[in-house]
Write a protein that binds this DNA or RNA. Structure first.
Lengths: 251, 251
DNA sequence: GAGGGTCAGATGGTCGGACCATTGGTGACT
DNA sequence: AGTCACCAATGGTCCGACCATCTGACCCTC
């Protein structure tokens, strides 16, 4: 049927796929400030009618938003805009790692670049409140020298606190994303760790440099710490027979 | 022949949501090496049966994977594992920016941290081939001093080439993600740019530092360049009446 | 026989409707 | 007044159908 043209000059083919329309709709609502973190979206049946797509298509779009970490659904309750601190779900990076074979060393190196920058910025402009948060974590680390799992939690939180203290939420989000991946493997090997005390000491030196407002020193201390941490994790890894059979599993 | 009983007989429960099952299935295939970039997935109807979910649920899962940039569908052709260089779709960061009000300065600062690290690493270990790629982009910039849009393209590609030359794909992916956002706004203002020649000169100095294998100098030159670029873009922005009315739109 | 145009099957995209599972509030019962 | 059971609202899943697009094989023309 060559004659059947559906282009329609009035409505050029500008129409996006239905799912994309939903994403765009929500995006505009967010950018206009009509939807804020924690807010609840209309029920799917209502929202579908409002946007002008079917419910399956609407759900398709919402599925995308959920994958991006923008919304969160609870059966029986409703769909909500993600609340809490900015969080770039670890899933994307995790998939890229599996697809393209990112190695643990590469992840570690990227993390190093980000954390060095964050430490430097934190030393320049951390507020008193955030410096206190750092001190709390350092204290908690010293208090849990005999409990590796607990120690690791405060280790992670210290690094997160440094990222926050940098005052740059973009940087903090990126660090959080990578740290989540590193944490997963670290959790399995930390039991074999030794010298937790030395690790705590290093964190304390980082804290002091930030508190003193010395960017170069903060960067150096963080660099030293990460270099040793990387080495430590590698040895923890070796101490375990581990499974080498898998081909594509790096991270 | 049970008339219409829906499964659930032997499987106790603990089953993930249908969409998550699909994601997990594909993830395992990728990690096991059975699915590689460029490969085609089975048709939706077949795949749904294989995994044991309905087609709508399967599509829900595929929608998630598409949002993460893992797969790409083409109507009439099939669904394929994403090929090409690692790419973390800009959508996630873009949404976070809208949700939490990341400012352009914060994006720029995060980019600065990443690019400084990349420049430093590139100077340490760039291969001859990748150094040549840098040289090509610098030359292309000098050749397009009278064409701002073309100049901008090579500007972006130069930075991308530096990220690649760092030899760390994780870093390159993160830089690419942030650059995509910055590029969007820059494209609109570059026409007002002046001193393209000086910009090209700065890129050349960065290139030389990398070629000379001098990490500190590469880092410094990149830092100088980004500081000036940020300042330049700010003035380009001011030169335009622009729309200030929007409340939540920062990036 | 070779080339190009055409048609059918495959495949993803959309839709409407239906039913299930969970949640949270409300009203009835004690 | 307190507790509990019920029910409406809402997201989760599924079915079947039809449309839009692409791919490849078939057929007609030269």
């Amino acid at each position: 049927m060559p004659t059947a043209i559906r282009g329609k000059t009035s409505k050029p083919d500008t129409e996006l796929p239905a799912a994309a329309q939903v994403v765009e709709f929500v995006r505009r609502q967010i950018e206009a400030g009509r939807l804020r973190p924690g807010d609840r979206l209309p029920a799917e049946r209502d929202l579908a009618e409002e946007i002008g797509v079917s419910r399956p298509s609407l759900r398709s779009g919402l599925q995308t938003l959920q994958a991006l970490g923008v919304i969160q659904s609870r059966q029986g309750a409703g769909t909500f805009i993600a609340a809490g601190p900015p969080r770039l779900g670890g899933a994307p990076l995790s998939f890229l790692a599996a697809l393209h074979g990112f190695t643990r060393d590469e992840m570690f190196e990227a993390r190093r670049v980000l954390e060095l920058g964050a430490a430097s910025l934190a030393a320049e402009r951390a507020t008193q409140e955030r410096i206190t948060a750092l001190a709390d974590e350092v204290a908690a680390m010293f208090a849990s020298l005999d409990d590796p799992q607990e120690f690791l939690i405060h280790d992670v939180q210290f690094h997160k606190a440094v990222a926050t203290a940098s005052g740059n939420p973009v940087l903090a989000t990126l660090i959080d994303t990578i740290s989540a991946l590193v944490y997963e493997t670290r959790k399995l090997t930390v039991e074999r760790a030794h010298d937790l005390k030395e690790s705590a000491e290093m964190h304390r030196r980082i804290y002091r440099a930030i508190k003193a407002g010395d960017p170069e020193k903060a960067r150096d201390e963080m660099g030293t710490h990460l270099a040793l941490a990387r080495q430590a994790q590698a040895s923890e890894e070796e101490a375990r027979p581990a499974k080498r059979a898998n081909s594509g599993r790096q991270v």
